[in-house]
């Protein structure tokens, strides 16, 4: 098993470390030639979505990644990564996302909650986080809500969270994603 981690900007090393803890190999995608390697899944990390989108376009990575996801490549997006998967960006998930939904840094917070299919008492770290305003089709399943807002969803083997499992020591989310890649 080999997982690609988009490494244009943001907290990609934290995802690589989470995968390492699970004994899974990963490699960084910084340009088009990196993308040509064989892979069983893709992680889109947190960071600034405006920066990541611009670099995806400039480096001609946007279309190849979009096509591979549409062709069934499993993908896991956290925070900015969830924004990339949403409508108006890569657009591979039927979700509409609100950026900076909790305001500025003073609105960042931790929570603990239940995530369907993943487990109870999942620690959730929200950093200038987005949330899902609307799920646009029944192909997409709501996995978790915090204070009435949707913060995790799955559509086939596409997984998106508004929070950052990679910033906690809890590896259940990454294990769950790896299960999606092998099913």
């Amino acid at each position: 098993m080999r997982i690609a981690v988009l490494a244009l900007q943001g907290a990609f090393i934290e995802h690589e470390q989470a995968l390492q803890r699970l004994g899974v190999e990963s490699f960084e995608v910084r340009q088009k030639k990196d993308w040509l390697q064989s892979k069983d899944g893709l992680i889109l990390p947190g960071g600034e979505s405006t920066v990541q989108m611009r670099l995806l376009r400039e480096l001609s990575l946007l279309e190849p990644i979009r096509q591979d996801i549409l062709n069934g490549l499993p993908v896991f997006g956290t925070c900015a990564g969830m924004i990339l998967l949403s409508q108006g960006h890569l657009g591979t998930m039927d979700i509409r996302v609100r950026r900076n939904a909790y305001g500025r840094q003073l609105g960042s917070f931790n929570a603990v909650g239940k995530v369907a299919e993943v487990g109870d008492n999942i620690p959730m770290t929200f950093i200038r986080a987005p949330y899902i305003e609307e799920i646009l089709s029944d192909k997409c399943r709501l996995l978790a809500e915090v204070d009435g807002n949707i913060v995790a969803a799955r559509q086939g083997n596409q997984l998106a969270t508004a929070f950052h499992p990679e910033l906690t020591s809890d590896i259940r989310f990454h294990r769950y994603f790896l299960k999606l890649t092998s099913s």
């Binding site: 900007q9 943001g10 990609f12 947190g46 960071g47 600034e48 920066v51 960042s108 950093i127």
Partner: peptide, 10 residues
Amino acid sequence: RQLAQMLKGG
């Protein structure tokens, strides 16, 4: 500290 982590590579 985690917000700074999100700025990395930027």
